[in-house]
C-alpha cells in the first residue's frame, strides 16, 4: 500500500470515527442501532461493554509492544569539543602483534614480513652497504645475532620446528607474532650486526 493511499484511508477512517462519535452524542440516533438484539445474544449488557474493554486492551498491548520495540528518531550533532583522532605511527604492527593468533591471515603475515624486511634492508643500507649487499645480508641472516629474527627474514627459511610451534601455541602465541616481535625489537633498538 503506497503512502498516499494509506494516508487517504487513514483520513477516511478518522472521518468515520468522528461522525460516529457525533452521532452517538445526538439524542435518539443511537437507539436506531440493534443494540437490544446484540445484548440479548451476548446475555448481559455488561458483556457488551466488556467486549469493548477487551478490544481496547488488545489494541493497547499492540501499541505498547510497538512502542517498546521502536526508537526515537532525533538528530545526532557532531562532536566539536575534541580533535578527531588519528592512529599512532606503528599502530598497525602493534595491532597485528597483539591479535589473537588464529586471527592472522596469510596476507597479514606477509605484510609483517615485508615491512620488517624493508626495515632491515634500510638498516643495512644505513651502515654503508650497497643495496645488493644489504639484501644479501638480510637474506642470509647475517644482519643480526638474534636467531629468531634471522630465521624470520631469511629467504630460505624453513620456518619453525614442530616443537617450537607447540611451545608457542601453549603460551598462546603464534610463530609469526613471536618472530615478528623479536625482529621488531632488534630493529627498533637500532640493532643488527654492528
Amino acid at each position: 500500500m503506497s503512502a498516499a493511499v494509506r494516508r487517504a484511508g487513514w483520513a477516511v477512517l478518522v472521518a468515520v470515527g468522528v461522525v460516529a462519535f457525533g452521532l452517538a452524542l445526538l439524542p435518539g440516533v443511537a437507539t436506531l442501532l440493534p443494540v437490544g438484539a446484540v445484548v440479548a445474544w451476548v446475555g448481559n449488557d455488561y458483556f457488551l461493554l466488556g467486549a469493548f474493554g477487551g478490544v481496547a486492551l488488545v489494541v493497547l498491548s499492540w501499541m505498547v509492544a510497538r512502542r517498546a520495540a521502536g526508537q526515537i528518531e532525533q538528530a545526532a550533532p557532531p562532536d566539536p569539543e575534541t580533535v578527531p583522532d588519528a592512529p599512532r605511527p606503528g599502530e598497525g604492527v602493534d595491532e597485528l602483534l597483539g591479535r589473537w593468533p588464529g586471527g592472522l591471515s596469510d596476507a597479514d603475515r606477509d605484510y609483517l614480513r615485508e615491512r620488517l624486511r624493508t626495515a632491515a634492508v634500510y638498516g643495512e643500507l644505513d651502515r654503508g652497504r650497497s643495496r645488493a649487499a644489504a639484501r644479501e645480508r638480510v637474506d642470509s641472516g647475517t644482519w643480526t645475532d638474534d636467531p629468531v629474527a634471522t630465521r624470520f627474514l631469511a629467504a630460505d627459511s624453513s620456518g619453525p620446528t614442530v616443537t617450537e610451534r607447540l611451545r608457542l601455541a601453549l603460551r598462546g602465541d603464534s610463530w609469526t607474532q613471536h618472530a615478528a616481535r623479536a625482529t621488531a625489537r632488534e630493529l627498533a633498538d637500532g640493532g643488527g650486526d654492528r
Partner: peptide, 11 residues
C-alpha cells in the same frame, strides 16, 4: 443510554 455508549466506545 446503552446504545449511545456502545457507539461512543466503538468510535
Amino acid at each position: 443510554p446503552l446504545s449511545a455508549l456502545a457507539l461512543l466506545l466503538a468510535a
